[in-house]
């Protein structure tokens, strides 16, 4: 696997710093949402998910050497996120659509 390319130690440290920063953001977002600015739940969850996604992307790209791997490996890794998105979107579709009136009958 190391015959593909090389990621320098400095990059590793930078990514680590970035991850720590994002962790701080997560904690900060919690306190801001609790104390300063109440947000609709979906926005708060969306922000948390975005931060988590960024962290995962950093780890996968640099720590797991995806950046210096073949296109095929990158495709497989990216597709796993696509599948995760499929699961989230269709499941959330159910949750959103639950309130939609559907059962019209003689009594509703």
């Amino acid at each position: 696997m190391n015959d593909h390319g090389h990621i320098s130690v400095r990059t590793y440290w930078n990514v680590f710093g970035g991850l720590m920063l994002l962790m701080g953001l997560t904690i900060g977002a919690y306190y801001i949402e609790k104390l300063v600015l109440p947000l609709p739940e979906i926005v708060a969850v969306g922000i948390a998910l975005l931060i988590a996604f960024t962290k995962t992307a950093l780890i996968v790209t640099f720590f797991m050497h995806l950046k210096v791997s073949s296109r095929l490996a990158q495709l497989f890794a990216a597709s796993s996120f696509v599948w995760l998105l499929i699961m989230f979107m269709i499941t959330m579709g159910d949750y959103f659509a639950r309130g939609w009136p559907a059962q019209t009958g003689p009594l509703s």
Partner: peptide, 17 residues
């Protein structure tokens, strides 16, 4: 991967799903 809800038609998932 896109059809799992057909196990849940009567489970009170939304009709549109």
């Amino acid at each position: 991967f896109l059809v799992w809800g057909h196990h849940m038609f009567v489970s009170s998932q939304s009709v549109y799903s």
